[in-house]
Structures are given as C-alpha cells and as structure tokens.
Design a protein around this nucleic acid. Structure first.
Lengths: 208, 208
DNA sequence: CTTTAATTTAATAGGGTTATTAAATAAGTA
DNA sequence: TACTTATTTAATAACCCTATTAAATTAAAG
C-alpha cells in the first residue's frame, strides 16, 4: 500500500472502522475486516490503535459528542417546551437520516455490552454539560407548567419518550425495508411521516 | 454425564441456549458455552440441532409464537381501542417483566441480522394469523373513529408507537441499572411507572 | 548521502469458533 | 442373552480472531 502521512492512514482506518461498526456492530467486525476495507495490513490497525476496543472507544465517543452538541445548540435557543420538542425531534431526524445506522449502533452497544455502557457512563457522569442541559430542560418545563402552557410532566419521562419514539423509527428501518418497501423514496416518506407522528404524539401528551 | 432420555437432554440444551441467547445474543454465545451450561459435551449440541443457527431458529420462533398468541387472546376480547391499548400494554409489560431480555433479544436479532429477519419474515408473511389480527385491529379502530370515540389514526402508526414505547422501557433497563439504581425494587417501580406512562401517552394521542 | 525515526509489512503465537468424525456407552427388543 | 439402535464422548479438522514481534520500507533531518 502506498505510504500515506500517518494521520491520513489513521483517519482512513477510523472511517472504515466507523462504517463497519455501524453496519455490523462491534462483535461482528474484526480488525481484519477493517484492514481489508482500508486496503492495508491488519497489524496497522493495531499499530495506530493498539486494541480494537480502543479504536471503538474513539469512534463511539465522537458520536456521543456530536449528539450532545446537537442537544446543546438546540436547548439554548428554545424558549418553550413545545418549541424544544419540535426542534429536537427535527434535529434528531435530520441527523439520523444522514447516519441511519447510528441509532442501532447506540442501542446495540449500550445494551449488549456493560463494558461499553461503562465507557459512556464515564464520560457522562460528572459531565458538566449533561447536568447543565438537564437543568435547563427542567427549568423550561417548570416555567411552562407554571404558565399553564403544558401539563405536569416528569423531565426524565419526556426525554425517554422522545428518544424512544425517534430511535425506534430508525431501528424499524430494516423491517420496513424487508416487510414493506425497499424503495428509497418510500423510506424517506416513511421517515417524514414518522417525524410528524413523533412530534404529534409528544405534543398531545403535553396538552393540559 | 448421566444419560437422559433423549428428549430431556434436547430440552435441557434448548433451555440453556435460550438463557444464553437472551443474555448475550446469538453472536456472543458459542455452542461450547451452551454445552458447558448444560454440563454435556459440545458435540451433543450439534447432535441434536446440527447447527447453531438451527438451534437459534427453534428458540426464536417459540418467542414469536408466544407473543402472537398473547396478542390474539387479547384482541378477541376487547371491544374498544382504548380497552385494547390498556390490555395490550399491560400484557406486554407482564410478559416482558418475566423475561426482561426478550425485548433486547428481538430488537438485536431483527436489526443486526438480515438472516434472522428473513427467518421471521418467512413465518410472518402469508401468515393467516397476522393478517387476521391486523384486520381485527383495523376494524376496531374504524368503528371507534366512526363512533367519535377516538380521532383518526393510522393502525400501523398506533402499533409502532405502542411497541416502541413498551420495548424501549425494557431496553433501557440496563441503563437504568447502571445510571440510576441497581436496586431490584426500584427497577420494579420504574417499570410500573413506565407502564402507566406508556398507556397515558398513547391514550392522549387517541383523544378526539 | 547518510542517519534516524515513523510507517508498513509478513509471520506467528495463542486463543477461540463450528462442525464432523469414530469410538464408547447405555437402553430397548427379540 | 445378543443384537440393534439411540445417546454421549473424545479427538480433531479447518477455520477465524486479536495482538505482538521483528524485519522491511519509506520519509525527514542533518
């Protein structure tokens, strides 16, 4: 393989790993697969990242970060819960439409592997941003409840409901593909419909 | 190992495999693991089931069936959508509380493996019962809409929303365990809360 | 142009995996 | 009891996996 400046190769390996981890999950992806995709020797993957777990960690945390930033930008601009729900659902759908495997990736790795869960936990717990975001959301909810704009809801439950509905819309994509239609346009239409449905159902649950 | 009458051994292997597949998923479970759990030779697993995939299939279809039966019994007894929503959510929560890994098992295998998806597809497509159940649900919805008892909803969307909210309540259990509380009573309380929340949110979305 | 450091490779150790074999053991039957 | 069939085992073939090694190659610096 033509030698690249080290950073380039590292980058290429990460990208290939990303694609494969997203497609098949951690377990089903081998460092040999990754090297094959890049077109380099398998030992090179270990040269740059030492272990497979390490390589995974870097990729995983990138996504955790990207999603956090998404939430952050969003919550700072919204002044009402209804607004926030609309924006956050739209943002998630836009993001995940670009990377439709990310939801599966997250669900799978968070649920299947206590090790991976710990990884995320480490970067979340005592994480200033997480606490800040949650507090801002709580405050926003309290204000709207006091103003009689929404009914009394638990912030955790609200988050869980939104995340559930959004994630499963994407988790169901392979099923939609196999059972209903494999036409790309149909899948796009399905996602648009789901975005509306998710928003509707959450907003319904907030009505006084 | 003391020799058992063949059926007993087959049964024991299936049960061990079930436990392990549910706990760790298909990929992470080896036939060696299964044999170890049973306390028999690994070749015996292959003697009875020939391949690991085969063993998995039998277990998987058992659950598909169990969940179908659950739905069937339920839909036949309900006369209104609101009734049905209440009953089905309760039934799912009761069932999954007994087997809290089943939701993960399903989601994971359906999403990760197109082969496993095909397996389910084969037993679903052209499946009389599935069609019947869906038709009954559609009829029930139509009646209630006509009677002004619920607003116009798409049956598919309703099903997806219910399944989403229920499944993710269980998918989130490991997270709840690690991030919030590992106390068994707390987890039970969480599930009870979720059951109520799922019902509430769905019923809200049905209000005229 | 040579030395040095970074990159890449081939080779391999030390695991683990599924699946198949033939041989051993037990149970059932005539 | 002797033959037959069903179970169970040990052994092993034929893979794939991660990670490490030392050697080869290339790029950069003096």
């Amino acid at each position: 393989m033509a030698k690249l400046s080290g950073d380039d190769m590292q980058q290429k390996i990460m990208e290939a790993a990303q694609t494969l981890f997203l497609e098949k999950g951690y377990m089903a992806t081998s460092t040999v697969d990754i090297a094959k995709k890049v077109g380099c020797n398998q030992a090179l993957v270990h040269y740059y990242f030492r272990t497979k777990q390490n390589l995974f960690k870097q990729i995983y945390l990138q996504y955790v970060n990207a999603l956090m930033q998404l939430g952050k930008k969003n919550i700072e601009q919204c002044t009402s819960v209804v607004d926030l729900v609309h924006e956050i659902i739209h943002l998630y759908f836009t993001f995940f439409s670009q990377y439709p495997n990310v939801p599966y990736f997250f669900v799978n790795e968070l649920i299947v592997s206590s090790e991976h869960r710990k990884m995320v936990q480490e970067c979340f717990i005592d994480n200033q941003m997480r606490i800040m975001l949650f507090n801002q959301l709580t405050q926003l909810i309290r204000n709207d409840i006091a103003a009689g704009k929404i009914r009394d809801v638990n912030p955790y439950a609200l988050i869980q409901n939104i995340v559930s509905l959004v994630l499963t819309s994407f988790l169901a994509l392979p099923l939609y593909n196999d059972f209903i239609s494999s036409d790309e346009a149909d899948k796009q239409a399905y996602l648009h419909r789901r975005e509306q449905e998710c928003e509707d159902i959450i907003l319904c649950s907030l009505k006084v």
